[in-house]
Design a protein around this nucleic acid. Structure first.
Length: 439
RNA sequence: GGGAGCGUAGCUCAGCCUGGCAGAGCACCGCGCUGUGGACGCGGGGGUCGCGGGUUCAAGUCCCGUCGCUCCUCCCA
């Protein structure tokens, strides 16, 4: 029986991988522009890290996490998200001891056992930033600005995006708000769906983003977290709003936005696309001022976001008019006969060491066919046959102009680039959202 | 977790309703054109019809199950 890929795990084939490479390059460049440095935590952690950090009662941990024992019986987990890992590393390596703000970013695979659908795989990829060590609302604003900036760089128009924003307060405010929700929803318990009746005990905040139609009436009139903020949290949030105004970033206050991870405090936000269907959130994040302490570090505030690569690729590919057939080689070597075939590999090796992208007709097609492949893949065809080799020469054909010339093999190999026509500008994958540096 | 649709050549799909030789276009290979590319013409190779079972003289087609994909719901990135 044929072995196939596991459900929810998919291959990114070369054609699509080009898009991923460009996205990753662009994301790294932009994060660097804001002073973030890459961190690469492992994909496997103790399961306990996520149970404590993300929250035992969250769907992510108790329903969707890949958990397994290693040979010593330790419970391990494939990371379902990266913030907990980044914070663990921050504590473990004493990054706080440097007495500075730590600005870290990551890009990599995450794992959640969910029902796969478009834009949602079981192995998926997230990029994200974490800024640890400051309570300044300007930092919240910077993180949100970075999120917007990234989407614009990727080529998404501002009009197609919207920012949902809320503040859910600090741990001092939370008990009062939670109590208010509990007593409010208890009175209307009969209206709630089964899940929400359970959430009433476990975590009444989660009722707020329930999508069940029957719950909507009760949710609409529910207490709002903004009304339960302490003085400091209110001031923090108001300052954030004014910073966003200064930056010209529009937001929609959404009292129902609470997000599905327990570590959030104060600011929570999502940046969404109007071009996506059910999975419209491109990235989400917020503040987590208690997480470092919760995981055994010194009290340290933090703020960050995470975004899904798959969804970005999805939106981005709708905006691209890529030409996958554009030649990617400088030279395609076409040997003729046995002599040519024997000389070809050596010529290839010399070309590549001179920085010329080159490949060889390995399949043994007819000359006519090989020339046709050459025209598709390269800008030059290099013919090596008995006629050429007899006089220590080669035939170089410019496939755009159709002109060919006979050159001395030794002269050509001494500086092959001098004989090759330069790359035409704007050659590949039109509409590149992340223009490469030239030179 | 719940609901719906779809799995046929490398790719896009027709054929299924109404059971009777497994097809088209693109791609690939050869020839026309013996050492020179995109066009054109002619020819060719390719398929456990997702998988398993059932009904039938006969199943790609009908029935049941199963796996996968897509969409909605849910969850979220």
């Amino acid at each position: 029986m044929r072995v196939e890929s596991v459900r929810g795990m998919r291959d990114i084939l070369p054609e699509e991988a080009v898009l991923w490479q460009r996205l990753e390059e662009g994301i790294r460049a932009l994060f660097a522009l804001y002073g973030y440095k890459e961190i690469r935590p492992p994909l496997v952690e103790l399961a306990e890290l996520f149970a404590r950090g993300v929250g035992e009662a969250t769907d992510i941990v108790h329903k969707e996490m890949y958990v397994f024992p290693d040979k010593k019986g330790q419970m391990l987990a494939l990371r379902p998200e990266a913030t907990a890992s980044v914070v663990r590393a921050y504590i473990e390596h004493g990054l706080y001891a440097k007495g500075d703000l730590a600005k870290l970013y990551y890009i990599g695979p995450m794992f959640r056992y969910e029902k796969p659908q478009k834009g949602r795989q079981r192995q998926f990829h997230q990029y994200g930033v974490e800024a640890l060590g400051s309570l300044d609302p300007a930092l919240d604003a910077e993180v949100i600005d970075l999120a917007w900036h990234l989407m614009e760089r990727v080529g998404l128009a501002r009009e197609g995006l919207y920012l949902r924003l809320n503040s859910i307060g600090c741990r001092e405010d939370r008990p009062a708000f939670r109590e208010a929700l509990r007593s409010y929803f208890s009175a209307r318990k009969a209206e709630l769906c089964g899940d929400c009746q359970r959430r009433l005990e476990e975590n009444p905040l989660r009722i707020l983003d329930c999508k069940e139609p029957q719950c909507q009436g009760a949710i609409a009139e529910a207490p709002k977290s903004l009304d339960y903020l302490c003085q400091k949290c209110r001031a923090h949030f108001e300052e954030l709003l004014s910073f966003l105004q200064d930056l010209g970033l529009a937001y929609e206050l959404d009292p129902r936005l609470v997000r599905g991870i327990d570590y959030y405090t104060r600011t929570v936000f999502e940046l969404c696309s109007r071009e996506l269907g059910a999975q419209d959130a491109l990235l989400g994040g917020g503040r987590y001022d208690d997480l470092v302490e919760l995981l055994g570090g010194p009290p340290t505030p933090g703020v960050g976001f995470a975004g899904g690569m798959e969804r970005l690729v999805l939106v981005l590919s709708q905006h691209l008019t890529a030409n996958p057939d554009a030649p990617d080689l400088d030279v395609y070597v076409v040997p003729i006969g046995d002599e040519g075939r024997r000389k070809a590999l050596e010529v290839l090796a010399r070309l590549r060491r001179a920085g010329v992208a080159a490949d060889l007709e390995y399949v043994g097609r007819s000359l006519r066919k090989a020339m046709s492949v050459a025209a598709r893949r390269a800008r030059h065809a290099l013919l090596l046959g008995p006629d050429e080799l007899a006089q220590g020469a080669l035939t170089l054909k410019d496939l755009a102009s159709g002109e060919s010339q006979t050159l001395s093999l030794a002269e050509f190999l001494a500086d092959p680039r001098a004989f090759l026509s330069p790359l035409p500008s704007g050659e590949k994958g039109g509409g590149d959202p992340f223009p490469r540096k030239t030179g």
